[in-house]
Design a protein around this nucleic acid. Structure first.
Lengths: 135, 135
DNA sequence: ATTGTTGGTCTCAAAAAGAGACTAGCACTA
DNA sequence: TAGTGCTAGTCTCTTTTTGAGACCAACAAT
């Protein structure tokens, strides 16, 4: 049963789950950040061009300022985006994707494209599941 | 400023954010499911071979039964995995990735590979950010 | 008769997310 | 000069999500 104690072999270093150190798995450590509700959405916007705080807020109308601030900070902390403050008269802040961010977005955009292409299939699966649960 | 009201152009159907219907964006609808804390981990395991409930629980020791049940159900609802009950004497349940799941995992595995390759860079960015915040 | 194994559910506490008020400095307006 | 709005946030409060752990029923082996 050795195969039970080993996973993530696709990601270079396999993670030995039997002697598990939760902060040691690259997949979990990286994915748990970009997996947030708003992260991919902001990365998608910032992959196209730099945005200012207020622009992003208008771009994603149903994000709260609190979550926008926090998500941007998390993305900045992981090195995906840069934050630059301009000392204008109402001070403005620009967020810009870094090289690391772009290198992440290359594979990530493929997943996003998949989502667009297969949205109908997913919705169909959902409808089918929900219908069968009612019977 | 028309560019402000439009995003997600990479994903086929662009989402018009000015007349926003939250359930209408493929990217958000699909990503919000696979973006969970445990989803990618379980998809990674099930991409390799089918697993039973207890196997998955041992594979990911720090997931609670409650979240394992719920995450598997969500993945099943979206059509990524199939759940098959065998009427054995302690009844056993097998989870198996569907074709839709595999087609999603193809691009997703590239992101997972990126995570493995760039984990060091992300950790370095984090350390740098944390150090600069203390100063 | 007790223990273990199966795949869960249930309850309760903790953590995370969302809603909305509040801040401060400056510009424009009345 | 007082009022309004813009900037990029923070603070507090409520709701939702997640986590920890007890509990369940059927059967098998001890």
């Amino acid at each position: 049963m050795d195969n039970i104690a080993r996973v993530n072999t696709l990601a270079g270093e396999p993670c030995d789950m039997s002697t598990w150190d939760a902060g040691n798995c690259p997949v979990r450590d990286v994915m748990n950040q970009i997996a947030g509700k708003w992260s991919t959405l902001l990365l998608e916007a910032l992959a196209q061009r730099p945005y200012r705080f207020g622009e992003l807020r208008r771009l994603v109308p149903d994000i709260s300022q609190r979550m926008l601030t926090q998500t941007l900070r998390d993305l900045q902390r992981d090195g995906y985006i840069d934050r630059q403050v301009f000392p204008t008269k109402p001070p403005s802040v620009e967020y810009r994707m870094t090289d690391l961010g772009h290198s992440l977005f290359a594979p990530l955009s493929k997943v996003l494209a998949w989502a667009g292409e297969n949205h109908a299939a997913v919705k169909a699966a959902r409808a089918k599941y929900d219908a069968s649960e009612l019977g």
